[in-house]
Design a protein around this nucleic acid. Structure first.
Lengths: 90, 90
DNA sequence: TTGATACATCAAAATATTTTGATGTATAAT
DNA sequence: ATTATACATCAAAATATTTTGATGTATCAA
């Protein structure tokens, strides 16, 4: 969750919406430096938000749907539980 | 989204799961200082994640469900779109 | 109207995150 | 073998965020 906290990471996540991307794709699409991208990628990976797959010299990154689903569930639980508080007697 | 980036803010959000809370409630439940709580509350408010309601000397804060719903929708769009990429021909 | 409570705000200090540029590693092409 | 490419990692510098403690404002009770 905390790894969503940087606008460039959100940008990288948005790029992955279209499917797998390598660091070189992100470089072309964002004009961020390579080490800067690797740094943000690392944080996203540590948060399990993305998965990686190596193919020769390239590493392809993509969104980890399970992790995103868990976050959605957490948000749902936040709102659902507080809805229940309005009702009573059960 | 960026306002989710602090563990104490996540803690405060979790407290609001149970319904409205005032700063004094959060103080009792978390042992954080008052100004520290106000600081985090301010960030959550600026992100529209919470709403407030004053009642006498107390200010009650609660989760803003619309904002949370929008975040869920954004996450859904991330995963749904990349699912579509796997299918073809439509 | 005085004092207490609940909370906001502020500036300075403390701390954490991000960026940069250099260097390292693995793979692959020549 | 040598060189180039793709990416990771590192330490130092730059920058941003958070914490603290003091002060300010509004409401309420005595």
């Amino acid at each position: 969750m905390v790894s969503f906290s940087d606008p460039f990471r959100l940008e990288i996540i948005d790029l992955m919406m279209d499917g797998e991307v390598c660091v070189c794709d992100i470089m072309k699409l964002t004009k961020l430096s390579q080490s800067r991208i690797s740094y943000h990628i690392k944080i996203l990976k540590e948060a399990s938000l993305i998965s990686d797959r190596q193919e020769g010299r390239w590493v392809y990154y993509s969104l980890n749907k399970e992790a995103l689903f868990l976050i959605k569930e957490w948000i749902t639980s936040l709102t659902d539980y507080s809805s229940n508080k309005k009702r009573c007697c059960e």
